[in-house]
């Protein structure tokens, strides 16, 4: 049952003299939502980029669904993961609907109206109004762009969803709606979610397990309750700061 859908072993990433990851191990288990936190510059985004093969690590191995990301042909695997970048990374020259259709175009041959119907379905599932499909990304608000980015990530019904700071820059209401949305979609679509975030509310609302990055490694993993007992100063101040108290309601 405890199958690892993502398995990172001994990951090393260097940029010049700066060592971002130094022998990092991390697992994402099937069906769980893993929250990845860490101070700025601890390589959260680099880790996400390494997992999807955008960043070639200096050492280590990355396996997604049993496929070695560094060496194998990723064409088939790309249909099984969905990535949502910060601020959506929507193609600005395409409408929102065309953005969601883009992964379908790449992977499958579908009739145009069928593709459009499926894209509209995905847009509705992430809570966008029907008229949003015909708009361009620059016409959307930040929250709507994130939802559109999520719809594109979900276009092919992936097994793994990788999210880079999905709630950053959203107002608290939109952020909490987004948390609810991720939790609901994860249930309905049976997703495993790799969630990079700074938002302690998101951790509280959606994550089964939390991994804290520091010093190029995973410092500690565990549930939120376990995090509260960790003695490490950074982890302690993260989960016991004033914002954390407000978010966790104690």
């Amino acid at each position: 049952m405890m199958e690892n859908v993502v398995e990172v072993r001994g990951l090393v990433n260097k940029f010049g003299t700066a060592v971002v990851q130094n022998g990092l191990d991390i697992d994402l288990m099937r069906g769980e939502v893993l929250g990845v936190v860490g101070a700025s510059g601890t390589g959260k985004s680099v880790l996400l980029r390494s997992i999807v093969g955008l960043q070639k690590p200096d050492a280590g191995s990355v396996k997604v669904l049993g496929v070695d990301v560094l060496t194998a042909d990723l064409k088939a695997t790309r249909a099984r993961w969905g990535v949502m970048f910060q601020d959506g990374a929507l193609f600005s020259a395409l409408t929102v609907r065309e953005n969601v259709e883009a992964p379908m175009r790449v992977q499958f041959k579908l009739a145009p109206d069928l593709r459009a119907s499926l894209a509209d379905l995905k847009l509705a599932m992430v809570g966008l109004p029907p008229k949003a499909g015909a708009l361009y990304p620059s016409d959307l608000s930040g929250g709507m762009r994130k939802r559109a980015g999520l719809a594109r990530a979900l276009a092919l019904d992936p097994e793994i969803l990788l999210l880079d700071e999905p709630t950053a820059g959203l107002d608290p209401i939109a952020a909490s709606e987004f948390d609810t949305l991720i939790a609901a979609l994860r249930q309905a679509l049976n997703l495993s979610v790799f969630l990079v975030t700074h938002d302690i509310d998101t951790l509280h609302a959606t994550c089964d397990r939390i991994a804290v990055l520091a010093g190029g490694k995973v410092l500690v993993t565990g549930t939120l309750a376990e995090m509260l007992k960790v003695a490490d100063p950074w982890v302690h101040s993260y989960f016991h700061g004033p914002r954390a108290h407000a978010a966790l309601g104690d």
């Binding site: 109206d113 459009a116 119907s117 509209d120 379905l121 995905k122 509705a124 599932m125 029907p130 609901a184 979609l185 249930q187 309905a188 679509l189 049976n190």
Partner: peptide, 22 residues
């Protein structure tokens, strides 16, 4: 049960009326 969840999520997202043919 898993399929029921999925069907419900999709049903909630279906457009209100049959989509017009472009």
């Amino acid at each position: 049960p898993a399929q029921t969840l999925l069907l419900k999520a999709v049903k909630d997202a279906l457009p209100a009326e049959a989509k017009s043919v472009r």
